[in-house]
Design a protein around this nucleic acid. Structure first.
Lengths: 85, 85
DNA sequence: GATCTACGCTATCGAAACCGTAGCGGGAGG
DNA sequence: CCTCCCGCTACGGTTTCGATAGCGTAGATC
């Protein structure tokens, strides 16, 4: 948990996962979806999430959540619900 | 949601909330619970969470989650559950 | 009243993370 | 060959973080 809080406690970290909820996105599309993250930071976040087994890279498709990453979605959905009040 | 992801996407941000799940903690206790966050950063995080209405300051008691903050706990609990696999 | 202690908090400064921009190499299509 | 879009990297300036020291206050104790 402490580890996850550390990884997710970086700029854009959760946002990247959040934007991938709709499905696979390529690098540039993901960049725009996040609304202006710098490519170097996005690159780092993607590496970090890939190391954590949350995101995977698909040739000619871009990036998408792994099965494990998908299971993280309910957490974010609940989080999103929380923000609505 | 984007706003929350922004606030929580800072070092120690969620960790601070997580450590407050056990109840009120004073500044120093919270600092130790987090395992060595610098006081200046902790100070900043507490201000940010207070502005978001997640944390409140109680005289002679320290800091604790607000009612709104308590409602954030299930999210973190689910997050913690996710990390266990 | 003087001292001691624990508290919240601030100051400083070097290190690390981040941002914006530019641009590279590579592959697909014309 | 040329063009276009792709993932990705390099660079320099700005922001954020981290470690440490220490201030001012308030309560307790002598």
């Amino acid at each position: 948990m402490a580890r996850f809080l550390e990884v997710s406690g970086r700029r854009w970290a959760l946002r990247v996962v959040w934007e991938l909820r709709v499905g696979a996105l390529n690098f540039r599309a993901l960049r725009e979806a996040c609304g202006g993250i710098s490519p170097s930071v996005l690159q780092r976040r993607l590496h970090e999430w890939r190391e954590s087994g949350v995101v995977e890279k698909i040739p000619r498709l871009g990036y998408r959540l792994t099965a494990r990453g998908e299971r993280l979605f309910p957490v974010l959905a609940q989080m999103e619900k929380w923000t609505r009040r």
